[in-house]
Computed example of a mutant assay.
Amino acid sequence: MESEGTEVMRKRMKRAVVEKDTMLGEGGVVEIVEEETETNPVVYEQMELRINDILEKIDRLTQLVSELLESGKLLLKELSNEFEERMILIHKEQMEKWQEEIKELKLLDASNEEVNSLLHNARCLLQNVHNDS
């Protein structure tokens, strides 16, 4: 089918070169004359319709790809923003947990220091009592 379309196009574009003598008798003048050939206009029209159909398909696909790219970019941007917000929230929550843990450790340390001081005082009293007896 493709070769038929090519052949029809060739027939439409075929030209004949005719050499004419001039009245002066020197050399010839070259004149290009289009040769009339019988072509099948129905085949040509069908080929044109198929070509136009393919071109329309190309346009629709191009439009679809463009729309998909734009929606993909938008979706990725939204996902990126959501990811960033979620990561910031996770970071903030973890930092608060660790700060609370640090606060509890400081309270525990202060309590241990207090108990240690009381124990030290108790030892000193016991040693003094033990030394006095």
Rank of each mutant, 00 (worst) to 15 (best):
E67S: 06
E70Y: 02
Q94I: 11
L61T: 03
M47E: 08
K77P: 02
V18N: 03
V115Q: 10
E48G: 03
I88M: 13
E38W: 15
Y44A: 08
V8M: 13
E7V: 11
T22P: 00
A16D: 13
N128P: 00
S80I: 02
L68A: 14
L119W: 02
V30P: 01
M9K: 08
D109A: 12
V29W: 08
N131Q: 08
V65R: 06
N121T: 03
M9P: 01
H91S: 08
S71C: 07
L126D: 08
N131G: 02
I32G: 01
V42W: 01
K20H: 12
D132F: 10
A110R: 10
L125M: 13
E82T: 07
S111Q: 10
V29K: 09
K73W: 05
R12S: 06
L118G: 02
V115H: 04
N128Q: 09
L75D: 10
N52Y: 02
L24T: 14
G72C: 06
E4R: 02
I58Y: 05
E84G: 01
V129S: 11
K73N: 09
E85P: 00
H91M: 07
G28C: 07
G27S: 07
K20G: 02
Q63C: 10
K57Q: 09
C124M: 15
C124S: 12
